[in-house]
């Protein structure tokens, strides 16, 4: 919005009080909101990505170990099928120790009977002990479905052992290090945190730039109208709506003129009353 008519440097304020300072500009407010949303989005996305990866990764590791357990299960069950009871299968100890050697992450492989008594264990000291009730319970599940459990810092994958009658004789479980899985996914966490930081910085700048641009226009427009108002009121002339402006701009121009008109009129009226007052 511009104003026409003569310009004077005198009385710019046109009797209006000094402009109020802008402490929290619109751009700042909206930037704060938008950047908070951005931060939140990146954090949640990173969080979900991390957990998803963790589940895919750990299930991949688990599937490898469940394959190993399955191999052991087959061999033990073949032996069971020869007609011996589980506790008599002396060669199982060798099978377990051989399988453990193949992988450094395997902490222990053990075979227990249906009551939970450890019959064979790569950790020979544990033989004769009891496994947890959760494992005894797990061994009663679907005989061809591997079960997975966590026990403090070890992860466990196991399968029930079934004899020739189809009856569960016990279970075989493999314990592997949870730290291994944590290490596998830990690197990603760091990478994700870094990425979140970098993208937050970059796109915060984009948001700021965009918002200052957007609200800069709003601000300029408001300032322009304000300026026109001040000028017309203090100096005089007419406000004309900005080219291409809408109804609001037209009405505002009318507002400015009307205000000016009112002020002028009242001033004139005051002068007139004064004159009449003095006349007497």
């Amino acid at each position: 919005m511009e104003k026409i008519g003569q310009t004077s440097l005198a009385a710019m304020s046109g009797g209006l009080p000094p402009p109020r300072p802008v402490r929290w500009s619109l751009a700042r407010k909206v930037s704060l909101a938008l950047i908070s949303i951005l931060l939140f989005t990146l954090l949640v996305a990173g969080f979900f990505a991390y957990f998803k990866f963790e589940s895919v990764y750990s299930s991949q590791v688990q599937s490898r170990y469940s394959f190993m357990v399955f191999t052991i299960k087959k061999r033990v069950e073949d032996s069971l099928n020869l007609g011996l009871s589980l506790r008599q299968l002396r060669q199982v100890q060798d099978i377990l120790e051989h399988e453990k050697q193949r992988d450094a992450q395997v902490l222990a492989v053990e075979v227990y009977d249906h009551r939970g008594e450890v019959l064979f264990d790569t950790d020979r000291g544990a033989i004769g002990g009891k496994v947890s009730d959760a494992l005894v319970e797990a061994a009663r599940g679907n005989p061809s479905q591997a079960f997975g459990l966590a026990d403090e810092d070890t992860l466990i994958v196991g399968l029930p052992l079934v004899n020739a009658l189809g009856k569960v004789e016990g279970g075989v479980v493999l314990r592997y290090s949870a730290v291994y899985v944590e290490q596998g996914v830990g690197g990603l966490l760091l990478e994700l945190a870094k990425a979140v930081g970098v993208y937050l910085a970059i796109f915060a700048v984009v948001a700021l730039a965009g918002l200052y641009l957007l609200f800069g226009r709003v601000g300029r427009k408001l300032a322009g109208m304000e300026h026109a108002l001040t000028e017309v009121l203090s100096v005089g002339g007419h406000a004309v709506p900005e080219a291409g402006g809408g109804e609001f701009e037209e009405h505002f121009a009318e507002f400015v003129d009307k205000t000016r008109e009112a002020i002028d009129h009242i001033r004139d009226a005051t002068d007139e009353v004064g004159r009449l007052d003095r006349l007497a």
Binding site: L16, R20, V22, W24, S25, L26, E226, T270, G274
Partner: peptide, 30 residues
């Protein structure tokens, strides 16, 4: 009356009306 550009504008806008009102009050009193 927030402390942003809109608040500033509104402040000035109101000031214009108040000014007219003010003048009228004075005239009225006179």
């Amino acid at each position: 009356g927030s402390d942003d550009e809109v608040g500033r504008f509104v402040h000035r806008f109101n000031a214009a009306i108040r000014r007219a009102d003010d003048l009228f009050r004075r005239l009225d009193a006179y």
